[in-house]
Amino acid sequence: MKFPYLKEAVKSLFSKPSTENFPKEVKEAPEGYRGKIVFHPDKCVNCGMCIRVCAPGAITRTIEKVEDGDKVTFQFYLGQCTFCQLCQDFCPRKAIELTKEYLMIAENEEDLMVRGTFIKKAPPKPPVPPVQPKPVAQNDQPKEENK
């Protein structure tokens, strides 16, 4: 009598299981994996290229006026992102990075938002030319015009 797979069966008895022991050993994603977005607001120049290339429209931007320029907030909604990496490739300043982190579990929308805020300084104002004082108008001019 012959057991065709006897050798294989005995070998499998003593080998490790092929199942990955997931929650205990979290494996790193392979090289080039496109995972969670990290935004570096200090590098961004607010050119808007990333918003232009994003197909699902996952990137939104709000601009607020503050004293010394614009307060720009970029918001990446990972629940809408398709992880195509186009925003990273097109960013001229390398301000967006798709990391290898892949565990993105959320219970509400807010947990899926990646935000970054920076202040874009307004260009320095050109020196104001001194205004020549206008010749004082005659007092007898009637003021009714304003009424």
Partner: peptide, 21 residues
């Protein structure tokens, strides 16, 4: 929606973590 697993598609590990949640 009680749990959302982000990714397109998510990795199997992420799906498992989401299901455990």
């Amino acid at each position: 929606i009680d749990v959302s697993i982000a990714g397109c598609p998510p990795k199997p590990e992420a799906i498992m973590a989401g299901l455990v949640r």
